[in-house]
Structures are given as structure tokens and as C-alpha cells.
């Protein structure tokens, strides 16, 4: 009896220890990044960092607005392309496909999640970029927002699909039966009952997808071109903005950290801080939307 009691207590401390370690690590990372970025914020100033578009470290110019816009744009484009595809796939898997087909499709989609991002980048460089390059616009190199967004859309597909599918499967069977018994078609049941009932899960899926997209680094470096330019259309046609090369916040850190020193290095940490805050804003607004949706 005594021994069992001691083991019970020991396990409790062990579990507490595991939890505390992960929290400590998170705080250490925060602390380290913020501390390293402090010189940049102090010497360059928030205004010059966030509102300037010229990034020329050798010249002491450290504006990252073009990269913020690059990150946000490529993420937004990937969401616009990837989310409808992912939702369609999830509905197909949860509601339409026969079991045998489900298993094949689900394994295939989960396989996508297991591909390292450098391989996605390679695929983008070798396959996608040459195709995009064929679009006859002067100054179009194939590398740029469009190629990057397509790669990113495929990369977020498995996460959004599987989380959405789980959310749809968690909808009580009784809702579906009630709807069908009222003379609704299968499609009406999906649109009017299943998706609204799965809404919170679907929004969680979107948050995960956005988080993955905005944090993706390697594949982006390989296809987006990495020029620090404020994205503008290449010609009179506003759509050519999508063919413009850009750089993401993550890419900026990865490309330059190897040779950066002093203020430049500190500025890369500051880029990380901005990225971090951007993700927090996106998550918080998604949660806000979610909570408001549930109240009404």
C-alpha cells in the first residue's frame, strides 16, 4: 500500500517535470530571440523596420515591409487555392467515397504530409517554375509568388483535409439521419447540417494550415525568387503581380543568417519576432471569429 502510494506520487512529479520542461524551453526561446533582436529595434527603430521597403544591410537599410507583404500574400494565395481543394477532398472522404476508395485516398493524402519540404521545393523548381515561366509576360522568370503559392497550397492540403475530415466524422449521426428523414438530399445535408455542425473543427483546420503556410521556409526559398521587392505588377495587367519575385520573412532569416553579423544578425532575429507576432495575430483573430460564430 505504502509503495503504491509512493509510486503514484513519483509519477505525478515526473509528469509535472515533463510539462515544466516544455514550458521552460518555450520561454527560453522567447527570451533568446527577443534579447537578440533588442539591438535592432533600439538602433533602427520600429518605424524604419516595419514601414520601409528597402533591405540593404550593407547600407544600413533594414526595412522588412516588402517581406511582410510577401509572406502574407503567398500565404493568402495558398489559402485561396488550397482550402477549397482540401475541403472538397475532406467532404469526399468523409461522406461520399466508398470505404476502399477512402483508404487509398487517405493514405495518399497522408503521404503528402510526410514529404520533406525541400522535396516540395525541388518539385517546384524543376516542374512548376518552368511551366509558370511559359506565361508570356516580360520579366517573368517563373520564380515568384504564383509558383510559391501553388507549392504551398499542396503542402497545406493534408493538414486541412485530415482535420476537416475528422471534424465532419465527429458530427453526430443523428443530425444526418434527421436531415435525410426530412427529405433533404445528401448534398443539402452536407451543406446545411454537417458543415455548420463541424464549423469549429474546420476553422481549427484553417488555423493549422495558415500556421504551416506562413512558417514554411525551405520550399519558399527554392521557388519564390527571394528578391526583396515590394510586389507590384510586371506590366499594365494587375494580375502580373503574381509573377513578381518576392521574399518571405522566414526565407530572409534562412538565406542571410550564415554570414550576418552584428546589427544585421540582430535584425534577422527581429524578423523572427515580427513573424512570431504575425502568427499570434492570425491565431488570435481566428479564435475570435470562432468564438463569435459560436455565440450567434
Amino acid at each position: 500500500m505504502q509503495r503504491r502510494y509512493r509510486i503514484d506520487k513519483g509519477i505525478k512529479y515526473l509528469l509535472f517535470f515533463s510539462a515544466i520542461v516544455s514550458i521552460i524551453i518555450v520561454f527560453l526561446i522567447f527570451f533568446f530571440i527577443f534579447q537578440s533582436s533588442l539591438p535592432a529595434f533600439q538602433q533602427i527603430g520600429l518605424r524604419n523596420i516595419l514601414l520601409e521597403t528597402t533591405w540593404r544591410p550593407t547600407n544600413g537599410q533594414y526595412g522588412i515591409l516588402a517581406m511582410i507583404v510577401g509572406s502574407v500574400m503567398v500565404t493568402f494565395m495558398a489559402i485561396v487555392m488550397g482550402v477549397p481543394l482540401a475541403l472538397g477532398a475532406a467532404i469526399f472522404l468523409a461522406e461520399v467515397a466508398p470505404r476502399a476508395v477512402q483508404n487509398v485516398f487517405r493514405s495518399a493524402i497522408q503521404l503528402l504530409a510526410g514529404i520533406p519540404s525541400v522535396v516540395y521545393g525541388l518539385f517546384g523548381m524543376v516542374v512548376l517554375v518552368p511551366i509558370v515561366r511559359r506565361i508570356p509576360v516580360p520579366g517573368n522568370s517563373g520564380y515568384g509568388l504564383l509558383s510559391a503559392a501553388i507549392v504551398l497550397a499542396v503542402m497545406i492540403l493534408p493538414t486541412i483535409t485530415s482535420v476537416t475530415e475528422d471534424a465532419l466524422r465527429a458530427v453526430p449521426r443523428s443530425y444526418k439521419e434527421a436531415s435525410l428523414a426530412l427529405g433533404a438530399t445528401h448534398w443539402q445535408t452536407i451543406i446545411h447540417v454537417m458543415i455548420p455542425a463541424a464549423k469549429s473543427g474546420i476553422i481549427a483546420a484553417l488555423i493549422l494550415g495558415v500556421g504551416r503556410a506562413i512558417g514554411e521556409t525551405m520550399a519558399m526559398i527554392m521557388v519564390i525568387g527571394n528578391s526583396v521587392i515590394m510586389p507590384t505588377p510586371l506590366t499594365d495587367n494587375p494580375l502580373t503581380i503574381f509573377l513578381r519575385q518576392a521574399r518571405t520573412l522566414t526565407g530572409n532569416i534562412a538565406v542571410e543568417i550564415n554570414y550576418a553579423t552584428g546589427l544585421h544578425e540582430s535584425m534577422l532575429f527581429a524578423t523572427g519576432v515580427v513573424l512570431f507576432i504575425l502568427i499570434m495575430i492570425i491565431n488570435a483573430s481566428a479564435h475570435l471569429i470562432l468564438r463569435n460564430g459560436e455565440r450567434s
Partner: peptide, 8 residues
């Protein structure tokens, strides 16, 4: 049905 199942 057996269990009341109004939609949410």
C-alpha cells in the same frame, strides 16, 4: 427518432 435530435 428515439433520442430527440434537433439541429444545433
Amino acid at each position: 427518432f428515439q433520442k430527440p435530435n434537433p439541429f444545433p
